[in-house]
Design a protein around this nucleic acid. Structure first.
Length: 492
RNA sequence: CGGGGUGUGGCGCAGUUGGCUAGCGCAUCUGGUUUGGGACCAGAGGGUCGAAAGUUCGAGUCUUUUCACCCCGACCA
């Protein structure tokens, strides 16, 4: 494991992939571009789900479920929307198989062709809005605040574990409102929910901001985003929230009678985060020893490794450990005693480090005699020997400290790699070295695209809460006047 | 779809200009010794070399065809 891979080396993607596999999070499936999420990886995802779901519910959102299949015709209603997804859709054309007439295997029964093809959802706006049409007639029916946890399929050309897979898990919220103001407020509220989650639970510093027109969601009037910096300096879009205006309401003819008795189209939002967050977690905090989990997201917060020579010692150590476990559980922590007796302690240390467990306790005959325990923290890889008295409270505080430290470290890294840039020459060079560059932009999609073609860098966002810089200046590329700086970066 | 690469036990690889019984590391199984940072020793099991056809006394190795996967692009809210 002493492999020479620093987070910013050329081998970053190799490091990432190895880590995802070795930490037992996921593996490539036999199906092209798809991924198997293994129990340990899924446990982390479940933690994310649970925390987000509770936050959604606090904002009045309810869960629902809509079909996986969407009739093709639904897609043709919103022109911009279909243009954004048409190239990556899986299409169901038949509904039956038959034995191959030549006796080998099975073939698609040509008789079973569907009259109208079904699209496997790449996102659910269309099916949800065709459903909302039936739910909404009066202003009294609004707002509708639904979320669904589901899978979606996007037939991407190139895939990477968690970051871009052909099928992925996510949540998509879809709301309908009587006024534009209310919908915009909702889109804002939800991006804030994401930002809070990223910062406080994932220990991931994110920049909240608006997407530029060129990066906006297909069919949206405004897209809000949380953008995170990975350890190679590239940007990762970790979540988005869209103000859809009346586009979908008009396409699917969803009108309501307002208080004045007039017909009006409803206003919409949609917002989502996906298993891509797992990728963000790996790339933001992982090191050469493996995953580093923030305590609030760790399925196991504390692991205990007994050290012994004889059965007698083993029993004595384990007894003590179960005692500590109970005390920690009483404080609300999740604890695992690694009592596997076929593996040596050193192996277990390495394994739990790989899996990112925040705190490890080791205890052997020496400790038993002295009334101590060895406490190791994953984020700094430091160890110290502590007295057993008051250990549970100490660990509890330590977990909180680790949570804060991981965030602080990621924040310091990001701040060190965000710079203002006013020279196009400098921009072209610096952007390739893994920086977020704060630059003036003239606001046109033409300039945005020209920069993208020249450097692959995109406008990650027009920041709202950090790195906000409202000042007069000249566009980095075109030289035209600009009123503010935006964030440019190479992204995943 | 363009450029490059790889297919050999579960995983990772070696296999010279064709040559005899296809090898190594990891993993697995058995026995023993170990256990405070990924244990050691001894033994065992497991592959017909991506697939098909061809050349040859003889093919993992040469030829042709084909399939699959990976990387770089194109693509990607």
């Amino acid at each position: 494991m002493a492999k020479e891979v620093t987070p910013r080396s050329d081998n970053y993607s190799q490091w990432y992939n190895d880590l995802a596999l070795k930490a037992d999070l996921a593996e490539q499936s036999a199906v092209r571009g798809c991924m198997v999420i293994k129990p340990y990886g899924y446990a982390i995802w479940e933690k994310m789900q649970g925390t987000l779901d509770a936050a959604f519910k606090r904002t009045g959102v309810q869960n629902a479920y809509f079909p996986l299949f969407i009739p093709k015709s639904f897609f043709s209603r919103e022109a911009e929307h279909v243009a954004g997804f048409a190239k990556e859709c899986a299409v169901v054309t038949h509904h039956r198989l038959m034995n191959n007439p030549d006796g080998k295997g099975v073939v698609v029964d040509p008789e079973a062709k569907l009259e109208e093809e079904l699209i496997v959802r790449p996102t659910s706006e269309t099916i949800i809005w065709s459903t909302y049409k039936n739910w909404i007639t009066s202003w009294r029916d609004l707002p509708i605040l639904c979320n669904q946890w589901c899978n979606v399929v996007r037939w991407e050309m190139r895939t990477r574990l968690f970051l871009r897979t052909a099928e992925f898990l996510w949540q998509e919220g879809h709301t309908a409102h009587a006024t534009a103001e209310e919908a915009e407020a909702k889109a804002n509220e939800m991006v804030q929910v994401y930002a809070d989650f990223a910062r406080n639970v994932m220990a991931l510093p994110v920049i909240v901001g608006h997407k530029s027109p060129g990066e906006r969601f297909a069919g949206a009037l405004d897209t809000l985003t949380i953008e995170a910096m990975m350890q190679d300096g590239k940007a990762l879009q970790a979540g988005t929230s869209h103000f859809l205006g009346q586009n979908f309401a008009k396409s699917f003819d969803v009108q309501f009678t307002n208080k004045e008795g007039r017909q009006e189209y409803v206003w919409a939002t949609s917002w989502g985060v996906s298993t891509r967050l797992m990728g963000a977690l790996i790339m933001a905090h992982g090191d050469d020893n493996g995953l580093v989990l923030p305590p609030r997201l760790a399925p196991i917060q504390v692991v205990m490794v007994p050290i012994y020579k004889t059965d007698e010692q083993r029993n004595a150590v384990l007894d003590k450990m179960y005692e500590i476990k109970q005390a920690l559980e009483a404080l609300g922590h999740s604890v695992k005693v690694d009592d596997r007796d076929t593996l040596r302690p050193g192996f277990k240390f390495a394994e739990w480090e790989l899996k990112g467990v925040p705190v490890r306790l080791a205890m052997g005959a020496r400790d038993l005699e002295a009334g101590t325990v060895e406490v190791a923290r994953r984020d700094t890889l430091t160890k110290e020997t502590m007295p057993l008295a008051g250990i549970a409270e100490h660990i509890s505080a330590l977990l909180e400290d680790i949570q804060q430290s991981i965030y602080a470290k990621a924040l310091a890294f990001r701040d060190a790699n965000v710079e203002k840039c006013d020279s196009w020459e400098e921009f072209q060079q610096k952007i390739q070295t893994g920086k977020f560059l704060l630059c003036h932009w003239d606001g046109t999609i033409e300039t945005e695209q020209a920069i993208k073609e020249a450097t692959k860098a995109t406008i990650r966002c027009i920041p709202m809460d950090s790195y906000v810089c409202e000042e007069e200046g000249r566009d980095i590329f075109s030289g035209k006047p600009s009123k503010r700086r935006v964030v440019f970066a190479i992204s995943y």
